[in-house]
Design a protein around this nucleic acid. Structure first.
Lengths: 336, 336
DNA sequence: GGATGATGTCGAAGCGCTTCGATTGCTCGC
DNA sequence: GCGAGCAATCGAAGCGCTTCGACATCATCC
């Protein structure tokens, strides 16, 4: 194994000079730097990570904590993870994979052992038990999603309010005047109120702004509930032509229910959803949708972390703008 | 940060004794060991990973290289990764996540820097450019899948031959006498011949053993090709009642084609597939299938790696037995 | 023209751990 | 009853790197 002293000897300088030439932490003459780099290349020198971590008190490794629990959308997590790794590498960092299962202990372990010098935590719950720890750890962290109290934490997520608005604006532009939001099931509200409620806010605000008649209905994650909500909607808003669905589980049942009730998508009813693209695409009638931009969230999280590692200040909340993908499920309102 | 000298002082012993007490590499009196452990707990001591890696010349970290390319089944990869992390933790190891994109350089980097002391490589290609490197690296590795030449490498995968056999045996037990295999598209054969061909071997062997009339048809990954193959099958084997499909992409189109040709699944035609459970389940008619046991492959890979790290010999090839999940797509042959 | 800064380089200390003798008491066996 | 042998512990060296202070060199400025 080739070490820094080998490079130093080969380049005819001292080990410390090699170190400075590579890190740039002290001025080194152009001439010397080139000689050192040449030697590094020739000898195939790779600094020992452990030695570095020990002397430099930083490991250049990030921890990524991925969720395990059921109901997690796997492709989203995977895209996110890949984006984190790719971005981290651009900053010379590696990524240690941890599972939710490790809990607080696991976080403390990787930090205390000096294995990682920053953390990315996915699937943050409203009252996540790891929050106090993350707050008091002397290592920077970034959360994906917003807990109930995000004070003193750095969080990244889709701007759900803007997403709700965008759905309505889209429907409004297509001429729809009566719209409804089918929201998340109660469980979701319990765990992650913040994000579900922000959709409602955005939806309502945009509907009011556009002077649309609107209604909001939470919905259980079952076909039976979907059917009931569909019937209720038509009863209460007979002129309904635009629906926003923020509830993956009932997307399909809801469309089925509407069609069974005699409404064709998109001829009679336009549908937009907030859900992963895979879900929106694989429907019988693919719907226009806004997805969590997993890759951007991943790279954004890493970039925030890098700034924090550099001692720079970062905003506590980063809300990513929604992007809408138009599909067959929405159409211009047919004049009646 | 609490270090080993703190623990030593607190326990009234020397640092080396603490080290030995914790590693068990030298006999330490019961009494002392308990005192040390007590101090460790009380002080919340976590040995510094870098220092350990430096002095002990092992990092207790495994690299996991995950594929990026399109066409990869994401849930399978994810399950695999989670299983690797979970199993690794049981052995006191952590997992560094790398993407395929890093290539050979990336592997060399994490090894040369001493960041990891073993590697798990997924999605190994038939003539993978990383093979020579993996062979000559002085760190153990385990591959998921079999390259063309697996000499000197440790590989784990589903026993595809047994899977092919199991499908046929299942159909035979249900009374089917005329069966066919719809195989992978040519691209797959190019990249990973071994595994596709082993399915054919198993299929043929089991068919012969059961004295079934059988045929094998590769199939392009398009609905058009699927339709063509379906028609060809019925022409060449009019008495066909059992089909094994080893080609995710045409599973759905093929079933559609059969039904359009007047064959109902499973009444007229029983179908078994080798594909991820998600795929088999989400079909209009869920088919009986054999999936890659991702979790087992993951834990198996880690266990092999641990044995190699301990200097023990391990088999070069580990073939995991197939497990069949019965679904609506197969039925007893109806007497005619 | 000698004090003043840069600029570029070196030597040595030290990061926190493991590990290799060496040392100290013991228990045995004869 | 004394050396052999073993169990338990200690001290010190060293893993490969970063970083701090020191030093040498050279241009700069009244």
């Amino acid at each position: 194994m080739v070490k820094i002293t080998d490079v130093a000897r080969h380049a005819g300088v001292s080990p410390s000079t090699v170190s400075y030439a590579l890190s740039g932490k002290r001025p080194i003459s152009e001439e010397t730097r080139r000689r050192v780099e040449e030697s590094v290349r020739l000898l195939g020198y790779h600094p020992h990570a452990g030695a570095r971590a020990l002397a430099g008190r930083r490991s250049d490794v990030l921890a990524l904590v991925v969720p395990l629990r059921a109901g997690i959308d796997v492709p989203v997590v995977m895209r996110f993870a890949v984006s984190v790794v790719t971005t981290a590498r651009r900053y010379g960092h590696d990524v240690l994979l941890l599972t939710q299962e490790e809990g607080e202990e696991g976080l403390r372990r990787v930090v205390d052992t000096g294995l990682v010098d920053a953390l990315i935590v996915m699937d943050v719950q409203l009252h996540d038990p790891r929050l106090p720890l993350l707050r008091h750890l002397d290592r920077p962290s970034v959360l994906i999603g917003f807990p109930a109290d995000s004070d003193g934490l750095t969080c990244v997520d889709l701007d759900f309010k803007a997403a709700g608005e965008a759905c309505v604006e889209h429907l409004a532009r297509l001429g729809h005047r009566v719209v409804a939001l089918v929201g998340s099931p109660p469980e979701v509200y319990v765990r992650r109120t913040a994000f579900a409620q922000r959709v409602v806010q955005g939806f309502t605000a945009a509907a009011d702004r556009n002077r649309l008649s609107s209604a909001v209905h939470p919905c259980e994650a079952s076909p039976v509930a979907a059917r009931a909500v569909a019937e209720q909607l038509l009863r209460e808003q007979p002129a309904l032509t635009g629906v926003v669905i923020h509830n993956e589980a009932v997307l399909e049942p809801l469309i089925d229910a509407f069609e069974e009730l005699g409404l064709r998508v998109p001829t009679d009813l336009s549908i937009t959803a907030i859900c992963p693209d895979e879900v929106a695409e694989s429907l019988r009638v693919p719907v226009t949708s806004i997805a969590l931009p997993s890759s951007e969230v991943g790279s954004q999280a890493v970039e925030l972390l890098m700034r924090k590692l550099d001692g720079k200040a970062v905003p506590e909340a980063t809300l990513l703008p929604p992007t809408m993908t138009q599909r067959a499920g929405t159409a211009r309102r047919t004049a009646e």
